[in-house]
C-alpha cells in the first residue's frame, strides 16, 4: 500500500477512537436527525394554524383566501435546518479534526519519529490531508444518510430525482466548507506553540466567518443568521452596506456558504425554484472563492510543516 494511504488510514483510525470527537459527531448527527423532527412538528402545527385561520376568515366573511403557503414550499425545505447545523456544528467539528491531527503528533512525541522516517515531507503532509478529508467525508456521508432517511419518514413531501441531485451538490459544497475549517484548525496546530491558543484562534476565525462578516455584509444579527427562513436576507440599502458588500462581501465565506446552499436547496428568498444550472452559474464566484481559500490554507499548512523545527515541546495546555 502506498505510504500516503497508510498515513491517511492511520489518521482516520486514531480520530475515530477519540472520545471527544465522537461526542461532537454524536451531537452533530443527533441534531441532523432532530432537525427533521423539529421541521415536522413545526409544519404540522403551522398547517393546523392555517386551517384555523381559514375557518376564522370564512366566519368573518372573507372569501378569496390564499392557499396554504406551506404546500407551495419545495420538498427540500425539510433539509433547510441541515444547512444551519453544518454551518454551525459541522464547521466546529472540522476545526477539531484538523487541530487534533497535528496536536496529537506533537503531544505523543511521535513527530520526531515521523520526521526521521524515510518519507518525503510531501507524502506525509498529503497523507494527513487525505486522512482529514476521509474523516470529513465520513461525517458528511453520515449526515446525508440520516437526513435522507429521516425525510422519507415525513409523510407529505417526496423527493424527486432532481432533488437528489441538488442534495448531492449541497453535500459536496458542505464538504469543501468543512475542509476549509479543518485546514484552519491544522494550520494553527502547526503554527501556534500553545495548544489552547491553537484551538482558540480558529474559533475566533470561525466566529468571524460565521457571524461577523455576514453581519457586516447583510446587517443581520447572529441569531437571525441561524434562522434558515431569513438566512439569506439581503442588507438594507445605504452606502455603508454597499461599501461592506463590495469590500468584505467576497471574504465572507460563511455568507457564501449559506446563500449558495439556500439556493441549492430551493430555500432562497432571492430566487425561488431557480434551476440547478442557473444556481451553479450564479454562484460560481462563491465556489471559486471557497476553493481559493482552501488552496491558500493548504499552501500555508504545507509551508509551515516544511519549516517546522522540532524544539523542546513546550505545550502549555
Amino acid at each position: 500500500m502506498p505510504i500516503i494511504f497508510t498515513i491517511a488510514i492511520q489518521e482516520v483510525k486514531v480520530l475515530f477512537r477519540e472520545r471527544v470527537f465522537f461526542l461532537l459527531l454524536a451531537i452533530f448527527i443527533l441534531m441532523t436527525l432532530a432537525s427533521s423532527f423539529i421541521g415536522l412538528v413545526a409544519t404540522t402545527t403551522t398547517t393546523s394554524i392555517y386551517n384555523a385561520s381559514v375557518e376564522f376568515l370564512h366566519q368573518a366573511g372573507t372569501d378569496n383566501i390564499p392557499a396554504n403557503p406551506l404546500n407551495a414550499l419545495p420538498a427540500l425545505t425539510n433539509f433547510r435546518n441541515v444547512i444551519v447545523y453544518i454551518f454551525l456544528i459541522g464547521s466546529l467539528l472540522a476545526i477539531v479534526v484538523g487541530h487534533r491531527s497535528f496536536i496529537r503528533e506533537r503531544k505523543s512525541g511521535a513527530l520526531p519519529l515521523l520526521l526521521t522516517r524515510p518519507i518525503l515531507a510531501e507524502k506525509l503532509f498529503f497523507g494527513k490531508v487525505l486522512g482529514i478529508s476521509l474523516a470529513l467525508f465520513a461525517i458528511i456521508s453520515a449526515t446525508f444518510i440520516v437526513s435522507v432517511f429521516s425525510s422519507l419518514l415525513l409523510p407529505f413531501r417526496h423527493l424527486v430525482a432532481s432533488d437528489i441531485e441538488r442534495l448531492f451538490l449541497f453535500y459536496a459544497l458542505s464538504f469543501f466548507y468543512l475542509l476549509f475549517f479543518a485546514l484552519v484548525g491544522l494550520l494553527f496546530a502547526i503554527k501556534t506553540k500553545s495548544e489552547s491558543l491553537a484551538l482558540f484562534v480558529p474559533v475566533c476565525i470561525w466566529v468571524g466567518i460565521s457571524f461577523v462578516l455576514p453581519e457586516l455584509v447583510s446587517g443581520q444579527t447572529p441569531t437571525a443568521l441561524l434562522n434558515p427562513v431569513t438566512m439569506d436576507q439581503v442588507a438594507p440599502d445605504g452606502t455603508f452596506f454597499a461599501l461592506m458588500r463590495t469590500y468584505l462581501g467576497p471574504l465572507s465565506l460563511g455568507w457564501h456558504y449559506t446563500s449558495f446552499s439556500s439556493q441549492l436547496l430551493n430555500n432562497s428568498l432571492q430566487i425561488t425554484n431557480a434551476g440547478i444550472g442557473s444556481a451553479l452559474r450564479d454562484n460560481s464566484g462563491k465556489l471559486f472563492i471557497l476553493l481559493i481559500a482552501i488552496g491558500v490554507c493548504l499552501s500555508l499548512c504545507f509551508y509551515s510543516i516544511r519549516n517546522y523545527t522540532i524544539q523542546e515541546e513546550n505545550i502549555y495546555e
Binding site: I27, M31, A34, I38, V41, A42, T43, T45, T46, I49, Y50, S53, L57, I65, P66, P69, L70, L73, N81, V84, L88, I89, L92, T223, L226, N227, P228, V229, T230, L269
Partner: peptide
C-alpha cells in the same frame, strides 16, 4: 454551543410564523 446557539436556534425555527418566508399571517 448548546446554550448559546443550538437551543435558541431550535426555538426560533419552531416559531409557526417563521415557517413561510414573509410570515404565515402576513400571507393571509
Amino acid at each position: 454551543i448548546l446554550f448559546v446557539l443550538i437551543i435558541p436556534q431550535i426555538g426560533d425555527t419552531m416559531d409557526p410564523d417563521n415557517q413561510v418566508p414573509g410570515g404565515l399571517f402576513n400571507s393571509l
